[in-house]
Design a protein around this nucleic acid. Sequence first.
DNA 1: TATCTGTTATACTAAACTTATCACAGAAAA
DNA 2: TTTTCTGTGATAAGTTTAGTATAACAGATA
Lengths: 126, 126
Amino acid sequence: MIIEIDFNSDEAIYSQLCNQIILGIATSQFREGEQLPSVRQLAETIGINMHTVNKAYSILQQDGFVKIDRRRGAIIAIDFDKLQALKEAKGELAVVLARAICKGIGRDEIHSLIDQLYDNYERNSQ
Amino acid sequence: MIIEIDFNSDEAIYSQLCNQIILGIATSQFREGEQLPSVRQLAETIGINMHTVNKAYSILQQDGFVKIDRRRGAIIAIDFDKLQALKEAKGELAVVLARAICKGIGRDEIHSLIDQLYDNYERNSQ
DNA sequence: TATCTGTTATACTAAACTTATCACAGAAAA
DNA sequence: TTTTCTGTGATAAGTTTAGTATAACAGATA
């Protein structure tokens, strides 16, 4: 999977890394049990420091997307705590929806966006 | 409207301020044309520095939620650029949905969350 | 043995966040 | 007119975070 970092973005590099990898998992470009590049290797290909990659991997571990094996590095391993995930999703959606509502975006339009995105993820995960 | 800041949060104070005010607009606790407290007044009631409030107000202005009048301070004034708002909402939703999909949350569950949140906002905006 | 892995520690720069003052111009009210 | 409120600007300083740069260590593997 190709990971692209926008060095002009406001978003921190480690955060972009996390999101890209999560996106990769959602679209099955990374699959359960698959191993991510080593921290040094990924750091070199992107052109950043090893510790920045390590920080991203640690956060992914903490958030239940990977497990870190001393021998093989970071392995995709989803912790399916759905109650927790639903709670977090609701909190994040609350912020996005508040902004949308202020701008006059209706409930149907949001549902439509959700469907577009889900369709897109499912299309890319085959 | 009561604005509460969590000083132990990872989220920056100015960012929490923005989100709370946007939430207030979404639930009609702040209405179009209404004026927000002055930067000094709000800073004092919260117990933070004036410039932190000013930063929040400036961002709200930039994002099209308020206009800043030299005489009256920050006034709720939504800039209804719906195309822009839809684009931004889609980008933010993409990140949230990717996480949800990884955790096995289905499309229907997301739709349900959206409805819950919309119901909640509409109930609080009367 | 040589090489790969993650881990840890330290040091440093740069940027972001926040606070702290001081001062100014414009508007409004006493 | 004077006082007091508004936002704005400049400047300084403290704290935290992000990122880089090295170095070293232990465990696994070839």
